[in-house]
């Protein structure tokens, strides 16, 4: 593996997860109220995947990172102003809807098509990264479909660690039930990895990285082709915010000992 990896990160943009989100029904399907006005960020899990990709690329000379992103061009551009300062990558942009109510099948088709169109792609060096879920659709399904379209049979989801052995094989830790990790070994690329949080902190902003990335980001945005994406064949009967407002009994001015007794009685069912 002297030539390094070709790491393609699939990463969408989502409304900043801290924002208040309301669904609205449109004739074409549901969307988020004021979606274009909400601050957008690179999906948090995709961002972890991107940082892991950059880290791996840095540690493996000859590697390169692409970020394939589907979103409205104006919003993509805005998000890239921040993301492009973090780590070096080449952007592959698709100008289309980024909301959560589009169907994974259609999104995967677009992403896989964009990956296949990357010039000089070599399957024997290919790693497809992404978030195991997203803060928008939150389905955890897109990457697997992308992998299938690229005929990649080694796929991992909820990845928290990827360690490369001397022989080029991987050890991979995936999240499973009960706060545990499943440990696997894989012979090497090609592989699809849907990342959970990994272990890397958000990289600091680096102006030189930003300047270098911008040379490819802006042309990529100019080149971005309109991509039609929706949820064909899906009929939404209803989209709503689950309202679970409870009548909260507020206990004030009760001595700590009394509160503790009440809590213990409640916990133990006494």
């Amino acid at each position: 593996m002297t030539t390094g990896y070709q790491i393609v990160v699939c990463g969408g943009i989502v409304p900043d997860p801290l924002q208040t989100l309301d669904p609205v029904a449109n004739p074409a399907g549901p969307t988020i109220k004021n979606e274009m006005m909400l601050p957008a960020v690179l999906d948090p899990w995709a961002a972890h995947a991107l940082y892991e990709a950059a880290h791996l690329a840095k540690a493996t000379p000859g590697s390169k990172v692409w970020l394939v992103s589907l979103g409205p061009k104006a919003k993509l551009q805005q998000v890239m102003m921040t993301v492009a300062q973090k780590v070096p990558f080449e952007l592959v942009a698709l100008d289309g809807q980024a909301g959560g109510f589009t169907d994974t099948y259609e999104v995967a088709a677009l992403l896989a098509g964009a990956i296949q169109a990357i010039p000089g792609l070599d399957r024997s060096r290919l790693l497809v990264f992404g978030g195991w879920e997203s803060a928008s659709r939150g389905a955890g399904a897109t990457l697997q479909m992308v992998g299938e379209r690229l005929h990649v049979l080694d796929q991992f989801q909820g990845v928290d660690r990827l360690a490369i052995a001397a022989d080029g094989s991987f050890q991979i830790l995936e999240r499973i039930e009960g706060g545990r990790h499943q440990v696997s070994t894989c012979a090497g690329p090609p592989a699809v990895l849907g990342w959970a949080t990994g272990s890397l902190p958000e990289p600091p902003n680096n102006s030189q990285v930003g300047m270098a990335n911008m040379r490819t980001v802006m042309p990529a945005l100019h080149r971005a082709k309109p991509a039609k994406v929706g949820a064909e064949g899906v009929t939404f009967a209803r989209v709503s915010l689950p309202s679970q407002r409870r009548d909260t009994r507020i206990v004030k001015d009760l001595p700590v000992g009394e509160i503790a007794r009440e809590i213990v009685a409640w916990i133990t069912g006494a």
Binding site: G100, A237, P242
Partner: peptide, 15 residues
């Protein structure tokens, strides 16, 4: 669920 358990949708599919 959509948007990480923040929205709930009921849907049917043709496929």
């Amino acid at each position: 669920w959509y948007y990480r358990q923040r929205m709930e949708a009921t849907l049917t599919r043709a496929h």
